[in-house]
Design a protein around this nucleic acid. Structure first.
Length: 851
RNA sequence: GCGGGCGUGGCGGAAUGGUAGACGCGACAGACUCAAAAUCUGUUAUCGCAAGGUGUGUCGGUUCGAGUCCGACCGCCCGCACCA
């Protein structure tokens, strides 16, 4: 018979699955359902090893669950809107839609050979009107429920590209494409009211038991709940309308340490004072300042004394100066604070710079008040001695003092306890063409009006150009000009499109009814939701997952998802990256040059190019085009087949950790699969009536493998499942059992391999006479009676050190085991007659003798 | 600064508080071969001829028994960060 030839068997079995429509998800009320989803890709045009790893993991789960009798939904789609398509159009001409659709075709053609158990009949792309039209319908529903609003917001404006930039697109204060100095502009933008759900999104994290703790913590930190006091200062000398100045603090217990009040440059009071040119001269640059993290971090604290005063709420005879300061954020709290330099690092720095009073409120327990050279900011849980407290006992924790101070303020009537969140509303406006149009119309008479649902989708016009900067929708008169949905008068379409995070915030729900003429269909959503297992990269730990959790709630509120789906992902798994060594040389000018792995000749001492010149080997890092440390999955598939690629990315490393791709590892995987093949051929050629030795042992090994591989897959320990498959293969290879027993073992091996390496599994299954498709065979069950050996080898420790071992029947009573152990000659020798203080027998595990 | 994670052979990694190093890579040895490749068999934490000793970042603790639990420290990685 033939050698292992994946190029022959892989297409053959893929065709067999297609013809039998094995992977089509069907709503089957008789079966439990299982929805497994991998984060859908951006259609860049090429798949990479990270995709292979991500989708193989999902496929292993999907195939295992299907074999276990679940009705499985395992779909795939395309996160197809976004800037790369526009950039390609600007750089190379062409149209974003053609570029994107071409990439989808290409990538799908690359994914097909992987043999993933995907229901391609449910394929969707967010850039298609069938999808984004339903998104527009939901946007309108959300408007009606008060979840959408417009407000002026400060954005990063690139004056050359004439567009808004995300923070991450601003590099050192300049646009990442244009290199132009980025301005902060105030534009009217569309927002989703995610902040309505701050508390709920935080509280519900506790229920996400099958999410990584790390992700839940990151989300909790992002939402950023804080409890504090909001109160009004009486102002002195402020313009009309500013008789009180509202401030927010999480440390109301330090109120008697207040030495100033400070407001944001964006605060209404600051704006009211701007008629004074000196004020304007201060606030203008504050507002212009970049918003990148680096700039904020390195920005020096500067302030401007307005000359206004506020009265201390606990002692109106004390007046504090009001400053405008660059480190106060308008977006958080009330945009105004009181400064307590003694117990806040920022206030301390500010007060030191401008010579403001620094007055301690508390000192460490047992200490006395002394001038401070640095702020004293102990943990809130630490008890401290209050010397200027006004509520609660003198010695108390910060926490207790804050609670007491809030109670005091509420009783005295000058403030109230307030819970604040760091989470801001989600600004979704993008001044871009290649996104979902926001389905509203601006009418001179009616104002901002939602488009009629009957007119959806508001389709992107195809006839646009990208030769001049700015949003092509803005300069497309026939698209932009329209009739007001309310009064019918001439009006203008909104030209902003939605953030692409909107597209990815509900695709998981759309997969349950991908071609419906409503966003979802109640019966389908009820049957398939929630996603039982979601798999993707940790880079989406915060935004995508938080937005999706918000969107699921919004979809419930607007009647598009059942209540059970407000937390749409029951279990989340974040997989590690595929990494590779980097090969570097230096050119004549001293510049680094990187080389593709296939151009390298690797030896155990180092690496060279084909011409023999030495290459520096840099330790493994994420595959990236710029470092050229990439391995194209297509090359691996053509050299070794999809099963090798799939097996390799699942072996070696635990799935949550990075896995290093190595040529030797890929070859070794191929060799192993070849051995499985050869073994299968050898057994197929054995006479059917051949009797052998050790059928029972082989059966035992097989059932142990069933138990261990199943546990490995179910526990997301694919590397361990694969280790057990190596063991089973080796056990079958060494066995000289009867033909029937060998065939049975190989059929089980095929079934257990099927989730990882489905093609060779089908081939082995077929050769050994398995019935039907391996992919449709019920998952094997381990017989508990076959999992344990009759005899066990018990190590004997003396004082915790292993000194001997005995082999005993598993069921032997502890008293007899003791006797046997103490009679063991090694034990007798080591004991040398010393009296035994204690004897511990852990049945089936270990014996420890203490002397 | 705040929050979190991780430190085990040459390498990736195993190990419900119970024989540390499963499985794989690499390396070494042998078989086959004129030879090489491929394949197969075996060895492979470390010191020691052996008996035996030592070993899971460091130091301490709990325990009959610690890679695993607790405390302190060192190192690396990740997330957030002027959030009042």
């Amino acid at each position: 018979m033939s050698r292992y030839d994946p190029s022959e068997i892989e297409p053959k079995w893929q065709q067999a699955w297609d013809e039998a429509r094995v992977f089509e998800a069907r709503r089957d009320p008789a079966k439990p359902k299982y929805y497994v989803l991998e984060m859908f890709p951006y259609p860049s045009g090429r798949i990479h090893m990270g995709h292979v790893r991500n989708y193989t993991m999902g496929d292993v789960v999907a195939r295992t669950k299907a074999a276990q009798g679940y009705s499985v939904l395992h779909p795939m789609g395309w996160d197809a809107f976004g800037m790369p398509a526009e950039n390609a159009a600007m750089e190379r001409g062409g149209h974003p839609r053609d570029w994107t659709e071409g990439n989808i075709t290409e990538m799908k053609a690359q994914m097909k050979p992987l043999g993933l158990s995907i229901d391609w009949s449910r394929e969707l792309a967010t850039c298609r009107p069938e999808y984004y039209g339903q998104q527009q319908a939901m946007f309108i529903d959300m408007m009606e429920k008060g979840l959408v609003y417009r407000k002026a917001a400060v954005v990063n404006w690139d004056p050359v590209d004439m567009t808004v930039l995300a923070n991450e697109q601003v590099i050192d204060g300049r646009g990442w494409r244009s290199n132009a100095l980025v301005e902060r502009r105030e534009l009217t933008q569309w927002f989703f009211k995610i902040s309505d759900y701050s508390g709920e999104l935080l509280a519900a994290l506790d229920g996400l038991k099958d999410w990584p703790e790390k992700v839940r913590l990151m989300q909790a930190n992002w939402i950023g709940q804080s409890k504090g006091l909001q109160f009004g200062f009486q102002t002195v000398g402020a313009p009309a309308g500013f008789e009180t100045l509202e401030v927010y603090t999480t440390r109301p217990d330090t109120l008697l340490g207040a030495s100033f009040a400070a407001i944001s440059a964006d605060h209404p009071l600051a704006k009211a004072l701007e008629s004074d040119p000196k004020v304007a001269a201060f606030t203008a640059p504050c507002r212009k300042g970049g918003t990148s993290a680096l700039e904020i971090e390195t920005a020096e604290k500067i302030g401007f004394d307005t000359g206004l005063r506020v009265k201390h709420p606990l002692d109106p005879s004390v007046e504090l100066p009001v400053w405008i300061a660059n480190f106060i954020l308008m977006e958080y709290g009330t945009g105004a604070i009181f400064g307590c330099p003694a117990h806040d690092a920022r206030d301390f720095e500010f007060a030191t710079k401008y010579g403001l009073t620094i007055k301690s409120v508390f000192v460490a327990d047992g200490a006395v008040e002394a001038p401070l050279t640095e702020p004293f900011v102990p943990m809130k849980s630490e008890p401290v001695q209050y010397i200027r407290g006004f509520a609660g006992p003198a010695l108390q924790t910060g926490e207790a003092a804050v609670t007491a101070a809030i109670a005091h303020a509420e009783a005295a009537g000058f403030g109230q306890g307030v819970t604040n969140y760091r989470l801001r509303d989600w600004g979704i406006s993008r001044q871009r063409y290649w996104g979902c149009p926001i389905p509203v119309v601006h009418c001179d008479a009616c104002g901002v009006v939602a488009e009629k649902k009957a007119n959806l989708p508001v389709e992107l016009p195809y006839d646009v150009t990208f030769d001049i900067p700015g949003n092509p929708l803005d300069r497309h008169p026939t698209w932009r000009n329209c009739a007001c949905p309310s009064c019918g008068a001439p009006a203008r379409r909104e030209t902003d499109t939605m953030d692409t995070f909107v597209d990815s915030s509900w695709y998981f729900a759309r997969f349950t009814a991908p071609h419906a003429t409503t966003p979802t269909v109640a019966e389908d959503a009820a049957y398939w939701m929630n996603v039982d297992q979601y798999i993707g990269g940790i880079e989406h730990a915060i935004l995508h997952l938080l937005y999706s959790r918000f969107f699921a709630r919004a979809m419930h509120k607007t009647g598009h998802l059942p209540a059970k789906a407000i937390e749409p992902f029951n279990a989340l798994f974040t997989q590690g990256m595929v990494t590779h060594e980097i090969y570097k040389t230096t050119d004549a000018n001293g510049r680094p040059m990187y080389h593709l792995p296939e151009d390298i000749i690797r030896s155990d001492t180092g690496a060279t190019l084909a011409d023999g010149s030495a290459v520096e080997v840099i330790p493994s890092a994420k595959m990236s085009k710029s470092k050229k440390n990439v391995v194209d999955p297509m090359n691996i598939i053509s050299a070794f087949g999809a099963d090798t690629a799939r097996w390799f990315v699942m072996s070696d490393s635990p799935p949550e950790r990075d896995v290093e791709w190595t040529a030797s590892g890929a070859e070794a995987t191929f060799k192993h699969l070849s051995r499985v093949w050869a073994l299968s051929v050898r057994v197929a050629e054995m006479p059917l009536d051949h009797q052998g030795e050790g059928d029972a042992d082989l059966l035992r090994a097989t059932h142990r493998a069933i138990a261990e591989v199943t546990a490995g897959i179910e526990g997301f320990a694919f590397n361990k499942a694969i280790a057990k498959l190596y063991e089973l293969t080796n056990a079958i290879g060494r066995a000289s059992a009867s033909t029937i027993a060998m065939k049975d073992a190989l059929c089980i091996l095929a079934q257990l391999m099927q989730p990882m390496t489905p093609h060779i599994a089908e081939a082995v299954w077929a050769i050994q006479g398995g019935v039907g498709l391996c992919a449709q065979a019920p998952w094997p069950k381990a017989d508990p009676a076959l999992l344990e050996d009759d005899t066990v080898i018990l190590p004997i420790q003396i004082n915790g050190k292993r000194r001997a071992e005995i082999s005993v029947p598993k069921a032997m009573p502890a008293a007899e085991v003791e006797k046997l152990a103490l009679a063991n000659e090694d034990v007798v020798r080591f004991l040398a007659g010393q009296p035994i203080k204690k004897l511990i027998v852990v049945p089936g595990r270990i014996i420890n003798v203490v002397v």
